[in-house]
Each structure stands twice: as structure tokens, then as C-alpha cells.
Write a protein that binds this DNA or RNA. Structure first.
Lengths: 328, 328
DNA sequence: GTGAAAGCGCTAACAA
DNA sequence: TTGTTAGCGCTTTCAC
């Protein structure tokens, strides 16, 4: 492996001269040596050793991204946004999928800590004590989407007003004529925003949420299936709002299996607007979250904080109700 | 930040003693000092600095994964498999999405080179000269799925016999009664395996591939749309095999827009069996590739090579035809 | 304009 | 059974 020392020898200059040139501290370097060194760098295909540099300057130009489940199409889209922003700044992205397992989450924290990543993007936190420790070590962190309890912490946040979004889409069902609306969501929603949005909408119509009509699981297709079975086995509904698109997919599938038509018998809505939502049957009425943009913004904020000390702030991105055919 | 030196001082031992204990070279260490040191490590929440260690031992315990498009649900599944295997061995994964852009691919290569990753997993290669350079630097590489030309190179490969798979699924259409079968695929298929499989099946029935009936684009929904428009604008087909599921999604959508029914008028098949394939309308008949397993196997082979010098070999994983309703 | 030297945090030979 | 030391490849201060 070729090192800076080799370059220096070949060029007949000192190590530090090469370093200065490569880092753009060439104010006091003669044009002659500069071109000579650069020439040799090109010839030899030399690439600086980022780990040596990282050790010296205490910065690795690397950020970590911890997510609960990369099978959920919402997250790859965020990852793509993060990647794009990271690439612009020459940062690398190390990816950790916790598979919704607190043990693996802890392992990811430790891994990233030992790797000395310069910052962290999180989408969900199972272990708040671990998070606290990272924050107190002054590791820049920005949280995307699945909000964590961040009061009093110096943390960036990319949020979408999911409560209002859920309220709006529930109102849509109400306006269309549904009067018994069920809810299937997940346990881990911060401040239960989605559920509360659902309740808000009902309240707006003088209705009250019926515990019989709600079910909590995880953000998976499976939860959609089991949720519908649980609810429709002992009661009935003519509307169903789901915590994300995957749940809606499972729910619609199960409703069909029960001989119910969507939207004729039951109007169903999703949340996220994953790429394939429009190709489902029926095409899904859902809330569009700007996943790519969320990732891009998060990484940009984080890296600007690392590089220039820009503040970590809260960034509220817009959502949009996408009307398709599952809730006509 | 707390270092090994701090631990050593607190424990009243030398740096190297701590190092030995932490690395399991404790054969000659007394039980007393061992427990004392470990105790302090626990108390202080000390985590070794992997970048310093990496510089010293010339190994970073990191692998890179370069993929063309993480929006394609096939790849997150591979990534999940890689992650799982990496986690088992304590390796980190740095993710690079090239967005099918040769410039970004080159940038990814350079980034990973400078980061000194111990190995690389690739799914597609645009720039073979860059790849050659990496191989000649003896960086362990394993290629998944999208095969690259690897003759004479010491490279691991996780493959699926896509040619036979495509032959089998095309035969299925033939057996069902389709006689004019079109093909929509991508340019970048190695050795044109999918297309050749399609031709093999036709040949088995004494048929010959008609250039009018084939279209090439990229592995995206968009290609499905444009492919169908291109083919059906000047001719007709009663069967359509697609290079992957996304193409099939777009194709089916466009066929519907043209007033054609699937499968009654045109039988359609996909390739990959992405998670949502069964939930599409109609549910997609497709080839199942074991994406998670492919990722897991790739990472495992790569890391075993890095750690123990195990050979990089070619691993042929099975496929399965999944019959659903798009090709009844 | 350029170079010498210290040191980032760690490992591993070697010495004791 | 434990400690000393050199050095991984780089940046940066300070001296020339």
C-alpha cells in the first residue's frame, strides 16, 4: 500500500509538504513542487488513508444510521436521502438495522461508538439510557420521523405533523360517510400521535374512540392481518385507518379474505405513501411523507453541525393527503 | 473521551496489560488484575477506539456494500442479510447507493478505499477498470446477483441461475397457452441471462424470439410502462415476461390503461418476488430469489475470507417459481 | 517555502 | 505475570 511518505520520497520533498498540498494548505507552497507532487499522486493512484487521518484529527467523516427495519420501504427512501447528502459532503454512511431488537440496538450504539462516527441519525429508540449517554458525550444526533422524547436534549429533529395528518385523513373518511372507523397502529408511536390524530378527527364529529375498534401491533403487514381479524371478529366497521401502508396492505388483504370489499364495505387508508402504494389493489389512499427529503435534510443538518457547528434544530416537513381508490 | 491509558492508570497497571485483557490474550494475566481492569472498564463505560486499532492492525472490521438503487425492494432485503451476518462477526457495514451513476460509483470506490474497508460486496459494476484496480490491490470482493465479468479474478460470487429461472417461467406461460410472448428487461443483465432464458424456452417450443416483442430499459416501474407502450403500440402479445418485479408492476399498470386484462388477455410474470408481489393486483407470478440469504451468504463468505483466509468461491443459490394470479 | 518532530489511541514484540 | 517501546499514516505547530 502506498502512503504519503512514498509520495514525499518520490517527489523529493518532505511528508508535511505533501500533506499541506493535499489538504489545500498550499498558500506557501511553490507552484513547482505543488504540480510535481500532484503529478505523482495522480500517477500512483494514491488515496489518503482516512483512518490514519481520522485518528489524528479526531474526525472520521462518517455518520451512522440506525433503523428498525429496512424491509419497510419507507426506510430505504430515507436512507437514499441520507446517502445523497452524505455523498455531497464526502461522508460515509454506516448502516445498522436493529430488526426492532433492543439487544441489536445496543450493539449498534456500541459499534458506532467504537467506530467513532461523527454523528448519528436515528429513526427510533428502544433504549433511552443508551441514547442519553451518547448525547452526554456530545455526539451530534438527529432523529427522523419516529420522534423520541427529546426534551432538554440538544438533538436535531426532522418531523412531520403526523397527528394532524392522521386527523386529516380520518376526517376524509368521515366526510365520505364512514361512521364507525377503526384504527390499527403500532405501539411505538411517540406520544401516540397517530392515534391521537384519529381521536381528534372523531371528536370533531362529536364521536368518541371506541376501544373495541382499535388494535396495536408493529408497523408490518402481519399486524394488518391480525388487527382486522381481532376487530372484525367481534364487531364491524365501515372505515379503517392504518398506522402505515404496510399495515393497510395486510388489512386490505384480510378484509378481502373476510369477503368485505374495499372501499365499498370498508374504506381503508394508509400512511407513508410507499412507492408501490399506487399499484396496490385498490390503490391506497394515504398520507405522503417526504421520506427522501427527510433523509436528505437530516443528513445535511447533521453534517453541517459537524463541519461548521451549525445548530441542530427542529425541522417540520409537510405532508400531503394522497387520494386514491381505497377510500372513495 | 476516555482511553485505554486512563483505564490503565485507574487500575494501576500498564497500557499493554489492559490491551491484553481486552483482546483476550489473558493467558498470563492474574485473575486479580483481570477482574480489576474489567471492573473499571465496566464502570467507565469504556469502548475501545476502533479507528486507532484499525490503524495499528491494518484491519477496520468494516465492509462496504455498493448497490445501484436502494429504492428497488430487492436490495434492502440483501442489505438486511448482509447486516445480519456482519453483526454476528462484529463488522460494520458502509452503504453506498450509486443511483446507477458511474460517477457516483467511482466516488464510492474511492471513499471505501480511503476508509480502508476490509472487503466489498457489489451488486453491479459500471466501471470495470476501477474494479480491476481494487482486485489487484487484493481487496476481497464478492459479487451478488448482477454478475460481473470475473474470469481470472479472485472474486466470490453469489449467483442464482437466472437464465434457467427465466426459461422455466417462460415455459410456464407457454404451457398455459400463450404463444406470442414479449420480453421487457434491462440492458445491464450480465450475459443477458434473462433474455437468453426467455429465448431458450421459446426454442423449446420451436419458437424464435421476435425483436419486435422485446424491449430494454432499466429495472424500474417506468421501464414497464414504456416497454408496454413500445411493444403494444405496433403489435400484440398474449404473454409478457419481465426482468424484475418492478418492471412487471409498471407493465401491468400500463396494460390495464390500454384496456387489456391480466391474465385473461396477457399473462405477465415478474422476477425477484419482492415482499409486496403477492399483494399486487393481480398477485404476481414471479421467480423467487432468496435475497436475504444471498446477502447473508455473501457477507459471511467475505468476512470468513478476511478473518480466516477462507476461500472466496462461487455459491449457487436456488430459485423458485411462485405461481400467483398474473399468469393463470 | 519547506522540514522536523510530536502525537492521535492502540497492538505486539520484546524485556524484565 | 507485567511493563517498555516502536510504530501504524497522518496533521500541525514551530523552527529554519
Amino acid at each position: 500500500m502506498i502512503t504519503m511518505k512514498d509520495i514525499a520520497e518520490k517527489a523529493g520533498v518532505s511528508l508535511s509538504t505533501v500533506s499541506k498540498i493535499l489538504n489545500g494548505n498550499d498558500r506557501y507552497i511553490s507552484e513547482a513542487t505543488r504540480t510535481k507532487v500532484l503529478q505523482i499522486v495522480k500517477e500512483t493512484n494514491y488515496v489518503p488513508n482516512a483512518v490514519a487521518r481520522g485518528l489524528k484529527v479526531q474526525r472520521t467523516n462518517t455518520i451512522g444510521f440506525i433503523l428498525p427495519d429496512i424491509s419497510n420501504p419507507f426506510f430505504p427512501e430515507i436512507a437514499r436521502g441520507i446517502e445523497a447528502a452524505a455523498e455531497v459532503h464526502g461522508f460515509a454512511l454506516v448502516l445498522c438495522d436493529t430488526d426492532n431488537d433492543p439487544k441489536r440496538e445496543q450493539a449498534s450504539f456500541n459499534l458506532l461508538k467504537s467506530k467513532k462516527v461523527d454523528g448519528l441519525i436515528l429513526t427510533r429508540v428502544l433504549q433511552h439510557s443508551a441514547l442519553n449517554e451518547l448525547v452526554s458525550r456530545r455526539l451530534p444526533i438527529v432523529v427522523v420521523d419516529r420522534r423520541v422524547n427529546t426534551t432538554g436534549r440538544d438533538i436535531g429533529r426532522i418531523i412531520v405533523d403526523t397527528r394532524s395528518a392522521m386527523r386529516d385523513i380520518t376526517k376524509l373518511l368521515l366526510a365520505r360517510g364512514s361512521s364507525r372507523i377503526a384504527f390499527i397502529g403500532a405501539q411505538d408511536d411517540f406520544e401516540d400521535a397517530r392515534y391521537n390524530g384519529y381521536c381528534d378527527a372523531l371528536a370533531g364529529y362529536g364521536l368518541k374512540a371506541d376501544p373495541m375498534l382499535s388494535y396495536r401491533g408493529t408497523y408490518t403487514v402481519e399486524t394488518g392481518h391480525t388487527g382486522v381479524r381481532a376487530i372484525f371478529s367481534h364487531t364491524f366497521a365501515d372505515g379503517l385507518v392504518c398506522g402505515n401502508d404496510l399495515i393497510a396492505v395486510g388489512a386490505i388483504n384480510e378484509l378481502k379474505a373476510l369477503g368485505l370489499r374495499v372501499p365499498e364495505d370498508v374504506r381503508v387508508t394508509g400512511f407513508d405513501d410507499i412507492y408501490l402504494a399506487r399499484y396496490l389493489s385498490p390503490p391506497l389512499t394515504t398520507v405522503q411523507q417526504p421520506a427522501y427529503e427527510m433523509g436528505r435534510t437530516a443528513a445535511d443538518m447533521l453534517i453541517r453541525n459537524i463541519l461548521f457547528g451549525d445548530a441542530l434544530c427542529t425541522n417540520n416537513l409537510g405532508y400531503k393527503i394522497i387520494e386514491r381508490e381505497s377510500a372513495l
